[in-house]
Write a protein that binds this DNA or RNA. Structure first.
Lengths: 217, 217
DNA sequence: GTAATCTTTTACCGACTGGTAAATTTATTG
DNA sequence: CAATAAATTTACCAGTCGGTAAAAGATTAC
């Protein structure tokens, strides 16, 4: 996962100009632990004690690196949003429409498989009305509107069925992220028959069929 | 919303056999307030004080009707799950496959539009690993497996494209519930252009096309 | 009307919450 | 090896959490 515009953490330690080796390590450790806890309990349901425990630190020690709970959460969301939008950025107006969409779906599905906690972190935030990420979502809107134009042009050029591009994106997000966000339900419904990668490939196959037949001219 | 197997609440008051008028009213009032709070904050993020405030009661007064936080949450989930599965129960093996699926999608979409808080309550619970509803999900599995058989038969009879029925249901759930669960995101992305029912009809039209073209032979 | 029951309020409690102050220990630098 | 800076621990704190006891107030049934 590459990170582009990573902000410097707002910890006390980082008020000094350069970050030490220990700062680097511990901050990563904390973010990793926090991702776990926030993804499973949401912002209000998560406690600093839980995060500190999972990171193997005392609470005051954790707060030495991040000045409060919100700062950790914020940093996770910032980092996430960037990675999350990457597949959409790569949707190429000059490529073959169906190939581009198939590739986009697969990338989103891979994200859901490989980074389910990130997906759940995001889902938690949106589900609760996006109180801490609301503004940053406008970046998302800009990007989506731009790519919606591309899709609309594919349609009017007769290279894709006529369809509402925004709702097409919603459908792709919903179906792919569902496997991360609703994993508990997916596991119960599918039972123990199909496991791991098999499950993933089944999903990929179904979604490919659904969207290709649903969208190809 | 009809309720079939409604359990009696486990409040102190209900330990006596018949429920008074005030009990009926206040319990409904509390459940209504609790739905609001749980849907927006999840179980751990919600507080009894918040629920009591919204219901216009004092906390001890609320706890006179429901013995604890978990009981309220449980009762909401039980009531919900029943209603939530109703559209699936009505999927008719003897009907026309495409008409049945179209009708199922529309019903699910209507639920998402008319009962978004219920959808978010459920989403919160599943997202956090279904710790308080896990067992009841097996009822869901039984029903889904039964209906998956129906869909599979439609496929082998050549009345529907070949597809994995379970993943088809996942896709329908994901796309329809997305409009309730991720409403904050949907609103940002769509902007203020299309509002209310127009938005709903756009979604319905897109999903109809997607699933019909994707599944019809 | 009055006795019995149901409802609501007041006053709590111990555990946990996010967060801080300051002393102590560890690592780095000259 | 000091001196300095960084990291960690100990001991807290005020506010909130879920929940209870018990008395006061309001309804209901006779």
């Amino acid at each position: 996962m590459p990170q582009s515009k990573s902000k410097v953490s707002q910890s006390r330690a980082s008020e000094t100009r350069k970050r030490t080796r220990i700062q680097q390590e511990k901050e990563d450790l904390i973010l990793e632990a926090a991702l776990d806890v926030f993804a499973n309990h949401g912002f209000r349901g998560a406690t600093i004690d839980q995060i500190a425990d999972r990171a193997g630190l005392s609470k005051p020690n954790l707060l030495y690196y991040f000045k409060n709970k919100e700062t950790i959460h914020r940093q996770l969301l910032d980092r996430l949003l960037d990675n999350w939008l990457e597949p959409l950025r790569e949707l190429d107006a000059d490529g073959d429409p169906i190939a581009e969409i198939k590739s986009y779906i697969r990338r989103k599905l891979e994200l859901a498989r490989d980074y389910p906690r990130e997906s759940r972190l995001f889902a938690n935030e949106i589900l609760q009305g996006a109180p801490r990420i609301g503004e940053e979502l406008s970046d998302l809107k800009v990007l989506v509107d731009e790519k919606a134009k591309v899709v609309r042009k594919w349609s009017t050029d007769g290279r894709l069925k006529k369809c509402d591009p925004h709702h097409m994106f919603f459908a792709i997000w919903a179906t792919t992220q569902h496997y991360a966000d609703f994993d508990a339900q997916v596991q119960v419904v599918l039972g123990d028959v199909v496991q791991g990668d098999g499950r993933f490939e089944d999903a990929a196959r179904f979604l490919d069929q659904l969207f290709v037949e649903g969208l190809a001219v």
